Amino acid sequence: MEIGYINGEFVSLNEKVIPIDERGHQFGDGVYEVIRIYDGKPFMMEEHLERLINSAKAIRLPITESVDDFKSLIMKAVEKSELHNCNVYLQITRGIATRQHLFPNVPASISMTVREANPLSDEMRNTGVTAITHEDERWANCYIKSLNLLPNILAKQVAHEAGCFEAILVRDGYVTEGTSSNMFIVKNGAVYTTPLSKHILPGITRIAVKEIANPLQINFYEEHFTEDQLMSAEEIFMTSTTAEVLPIVRVNDKPIGHGVPGEVTKKLYEQFKRKVETL
């Protein structure tokens, strides 16, 4: 069953548990992670939790729990849910205190949900998805996985209303990432993705793709690329915890390459699946 957790107590997802003065609710003052569980086993959980703690440090949010503490809590929740393939959303906020901008002297608030995973269909993977480009209107510190996602939501909605799966964000003429994904292009058989900086999230599936490219003898480069280079790419694909490795075959209603998922993307996805199978 799908379940929730808040500050030491497992609860029904329908239970009313968030106080009015919760700073995540009032300010978006917190950070989060999404961890995929495959057949009861977490995928790259250590990397997810290290990113969570780094995000908390970046917003000066003190966390007393260790990575091992969070691992134990997550696996206890997964076991309690009896779900073998699920997504775990773990959220930490600055706590519960009377509304004011200054940091309160209260404990952090920890909440979590465990929900059944809804993998993308084989049809989507076999035919690829579509995207639009959109101005990157987010703040300057996108490397922090914060709760403040309004610009992402607005861009994603624009993409949806255009009949597309994702919006590819562009800042000063250069592609940064998607609204909820890292972005990659293929040129001369090599993979290119935006270098890590404050302007993009250090994706966990991005790490996995970088690792699996080498045994496939696919060159992997972290270099900036323009919107024009995006549109002239041989292939485009996106990565995220929930989408995994997903081909994009049309952008702004124009075909990318031959308008079908490319061979490099297919090879990377197959290798990604093998990595999951060895958990």
Rank of each mutant, 00 (worst) to 15 (best):
224 H>K: 13
141 N>V: 12
56 A>P: 06
80 K>I: 01
55 S>T: 05
277 E>F: 09
194 T>D: 06
210 K>V: 05
220 F>G: 06
160 H>N: 13
48 H>N: 08
186 V>P: 14
193 T>I: 13
136 D>E: 04
82 E>T: 10
115 R>E: 15
116 E>P: 12
19 P>S: 10
9 E>W: 10
225 F>T: 00
114 V>I: 15
101 H>R: 14
101 H>C: 11
10 F>E: 01
70 F>K: 03
114 V>M: 08
273 K>I: 12
66 S>C: 06
14 N>I: 00
103 F>A: 13
164 C>M: 10
144 I>K: 03
42 P>V: 00
123 E>P: 12
100 Q>D: 10
251 V>R: 01
10 F>V: 02
248 I>T: 09
45 M>V: 13
278 T>Q: 15
42 P>K: 03
3 I>W: 06
35 I>Q: 02
61 L>I: 03
3 I>C: 10
219 N>C: 05
85 N>F: 09
167 A>R: 13
261 P>E: 08
97 A>I: 06
263 E>V: 13
2 E>Y: 03
2 E>G: 02
199 H>R: 13
146 S>Y: 00
221 Y>R: 09
255 P>E: 04
141 N>G: 11
53 I>N: 03
185 I>F: 09
37 I>G: 07
88 V>F: 00
166 E>C: 12
235 E>L: 08
196 L>Q: 06
163 G>R: 07
225 F>N: 04
276 V>A: 01
120 L>F: 13
62 P>W: 12
97 A>Y: 05
189 G>C: 13
240 S>D: 11
78 V>D: 00
137 E>D: 07
10 F>G: 00
165 F>K: 01
7 N>P: 06
261 P>D: 14
45 M>F: 09
134 H>Y: 15
162 A>F: 11
246 L>Q: 06
103 F>H: 02
237 F>G: 04
205 T>R: 00
72 S>L: 07
234 E>I: 04
208 A>G: 08
73 L>S: 06
40 G>F: 03
255 P>I: 04
171 R>H: 10
151 P>G: 04
66 S>P: 00
131 A>G: 12
125 R>N: 12
4 G>V: 05
8 G>D: 10
243 A>D: 13
210 K>N: 09
223 E>K: 15
142 C>P: 08
98 T>W: 14
218 I>A: 09
215 P>W: 08
212 I>P: 02
32 Y>T: 00
4 G>C: 01
65 E>I: 04
86 C>K: 03
276 V>W: 07
152 N>Y: 15
80 K>V: 02
53 I>Q: 05
